[in-house]
Design a binder for these strands. Structure first.
Lengths: 314, 314
DNA sequence: CAACGTTCTGCTCATTTGAGCATTTAGTCA
DNA sequence: TGACTAAATGCTCAAATGAGCAGAACGTTG
């Protein structure tokens, strides 16, 4: 190749970057080739990286965005954050990431409180056998049993427990009851209360959230009517966490409804040491923001876009 | 951040790549963090780069593709090749690249033979003042003067000459003549012959090519009718170089027409030391292949996609 | 089960690289 | 013009890295 003379610094920088990264020549060689000292070559390379002329990308389904994770941790005082790059099958990727996170969690949880839903299912599916050694998996909110998808919630718990070499403890109660008295009665029932008490002592929680619209699984299961949800939205609901509808400030939007909801309280999530919140997808940006900004989790597992929305200046 | 345990090698590789490239930790630190030796970290990083998990990209309008350039040089025995990344404004990028190449050409050409056209215009536009010192720019094929775009060809030559601190020598002849006798007469005219003789001794040539369809500037200028071109295509024409229509084997498709074309012969390009062929865009893939595979140039300046087509196994 | 070849591992050593610093150069304002 | 500040340059030195190699672990085949 004939020798070249580069003129402005920018072009020189590009040439250097090409020779270094594409042709992997040494900085010294490049210096000799382009007639500059190796120190200048080094500095221009640093510049090239800083100025984004050289872009280094890790292309892998299980890659993460450590920079964004750090930002999230710092901004919201989180214990940890996991952010996966944007992709088509977001839910699956994030599920995988949550499974990975759970697997690498130290100390290995003895008791894990979980919610249920499609996201949680996904996490369960991505866990490998032996991710824990004798973990007790406890449901932390009432499950769906009104329609054909009945078994889902218990299946999720069972799968996570099975793969972790332990047992699932189900919460034998509907998610939302029609009457306050029934809710009080069932919550104080020995069986239900026992499960909730054990749940309260779990070493970690893993849960997702639902969107406040008629597509919600709580609507699909018949706990709420589309009108109910519309009314909740009118009151400021952005979505539900462990069955409880909250507004942008992280507070229950409808105290009456909240009292009829069976399961762990939001405060218990807030004060937990390890509360892992898994959330993926555009639709859940609002509820994700409500949860993360109001301290309802200590660890968040999500996708790059959701993370970006969380980090936006408000 | 809590400690993590990575399981399969692939995941470990990804984690290492992230820590190294995103968090720029040292290989030693990463080793300590993930519980492997620093040599393993190093090896996995190499692997990650080889296997494409780590992708390093140089994002810049004037970046090039040195790997592809090398392939082109080797495959076609070229003296040099310049390949720019795919982009929207291909013609402009390639023009810039050709201008850069010309500028860095050593020894600086004393005499430069050029064709004309939109591509050449672009190259001229991207040259900086002082790219050469007293270069003589000579037209190597007859110019268009049948329509309003008359001045174009001479303007290109003048611009290149002006910026190179020299003078342009125009070829005072139409590109294609109607009758063979006229063509012979004009070619032997002292003025025209003189220019062509000087052109034959140029230290470098710079030219582009046209597509064989009715959008060609030769059609637009009235030298050929759409029907003429259709007939040429039927005979196997893929495009024109310095006004001469060739087939995929680099031979003139229509000897009669070729004799009526005024300008440097293809053999003179073939035997030139420095014949820089500039070509950009999807439409020109065929003509580009014809020129490059048949030794009609010693240097090619093009875009990534065209280069890829050239490198396809045939 | 033993002999073999292959892959993997951790090492030494030479090379490559980046941080820090003194010096030069360029730019600015009195 | 000259004095001052900021930027750029080229150096020393220590840290980081990759190449090459010997031994270990592994699987394979007779």
């Amino acid at each position: 190749m004939p020798s070249r003379v580069a003129h402005d610094t920018e072009l020189l920088t590009v040439r250097i970057a090409e020779l270094y990264y594409d042709e992997n020549k040494t900085q010294d060689e490049i210096g000799a080739l382009l007639g500059v000292t190796r120190w200048k070559v080094g500095r221009l390379l640093t510049q090239a990286r800083e100025r984004g002329i050289v872009r280094i990308e890790i292309v892998h389904p299980r890659a993460r965005r450590l920079g964004i994770e750090r930002d999230l941790r710092e901004r919201f005082g989180l214990k940890d954050a996991v952010v996966v790059p944007a992709a088509d099958d977001l839910r699956s990727r994030v599920g995988q990431a949550a499974a990975d996170y759970l697997t690498s969690l130290r100390p290995v949880p003895r008791t894990l409180g979980i919610s249920w839903g499609r996201t949680l299912d996904d996490v369960a599916g991505h866990l490998s056998k032996g991710w824990a050694n004798g973990v007790t998996v406890i449901q932390i909110n009432g499950s769906v049993s009104l329609n054909r998808r009945a078994g889902t919630a218990s299946t999720t718990a069972a799968e996570i427990a099975l793969k972790g070499g332990g047992q699932a403890v189900l919460l034998p109660s509907p998610a939302i009851l029609e009457r306050l008295e029934t809710a009080r009665a069932i919550s104080s029932d020995r069986t239900v209360a026992g499960v909730l008490n054990r749940a309260a002592t779990a070493s970690a929680y893993l849960y997702s959230a639902g969107v406040a619209d008629s597509s919600s699984i709580l609507v699909g299961s018949g706990y709420l009517s589309p009108d109910d949800v519309a009314e909740l939205v009118r009151k400021g609901a952005v979505g539900d966490v462990v069955g409880r509808y909250i507004d942008a400030n992280g507070n229950p939007v409808d105290p009456g409804l909240d009292e009829r909801t069976v399961g762990l309280g939001l405060d218990q999530l807030r004060s937990a040491t390890t509360a892992i919140f898994v959330v993926a997808g555009d639709a859940k940006h609002d509820i994700a923001r409500a949860v993360v900004t109001n301290g309802l989790c200590s660890v968040v597992v999500t996708d790059e876009e959701t993370a970006a929305v969380l980090l936006e200046e408000q």
